[in-house]
Amino acid sequence: MAAETADWLGVPLAIIGGTLRGSAPFLFVSLGECLTEKSGKINLGLEGTLLTGAMSAYAVSYLTGSPWLGVLAAGVAGLCLGAIHAWLSQRSGVSDVAVGIAMIVFGSGIAFFFGKAFIQPQAPQLPIFEFGAWSNYPPLQSALQVSPLLLIGIAIAPIMQWFFKSTRWGLYVRAVGDSPSAARAMGISVFWVRFLAITIGSFLSAIGGACLSLYYPGIWSENISSGQGLMAVALVIFARWQPMQCLWAALLFGGAQAIGPALQSVGVTSFRYLFNASPYIFTLIIMIITCSPKRTLAGSPGALGTNE
């Protein structure tokens, strides 16, 4: 009988389910940040974008009854915030990290201000694919419930990888990110390439917000993001600015969220907070091991962190 197998099978299934449920926002935000950083600018403000995306998706889904319109609205909100960041962070004498922090405040302010009316109502949620329907074992069924947004995100990763590697525009982005002066000499408009990279990156992370509010956990609340937007910056370095590796990193971080509760559900309770902090500790250790003062990280855009 299913109930007896539940105890030992439950943990890996809960982690797999948690990974599939929880990694979508990480994936979108890290892809967005990856695109942004490839162009040589950093966007710390994605936390604000994520919140605004989550709020607008939920609000529009509730008001129109169509969750997909909500996703679209999140994207548009992301474009707007991204445009502010893209324009401001490229003005002379303005630090992109500073604009990012200010955008966290502004973005979360906008999200909380307009989101007050939407904390209470229940908005229609995105449909889900039941990949576990063949099984009659409920934990497996629930673990394999996959959001179409996650599939879209998984599809974007290789496309972005291909975009950077094999397209003319991808080359432009990399050129601008590695050496703006050389790109300028090639006749590329550094401003516009970065503008597009940042706004589209912001668009993607706002969709990540929509994953939070319209899929999992599927509510709008002011605490909906547990720092996914900020973590994305670390995640991208973790993934060495490779979109495909962003995918693996996002799955890892999504899964890490599920480990704590899953282990508690079978009785492992010690060091709860350190368990919750494990993704951060893990990332830091990986960075310490893999970095070197002699060379920059492979794949690191040359202009990143400079004010070029």
């Binding site: 389910g17 948690g18 934990p139 605490n223």
Partner: peptide, 25 residues
């Protein structure tokens, strides 16, 4: 079955705790 999330408001962990308990029957 009880799961402590460690924080008063942390929606993703709460959902994860709820889901893993449903998986436990």
């Amino acid at each position: 079955q009880v799961i402590f999330t460690g924080d008063w408001s942390i929606p993703v962990k709460e959902a994860e705790a709820a889901n893993s308990m449903v998986d436990q029957g």
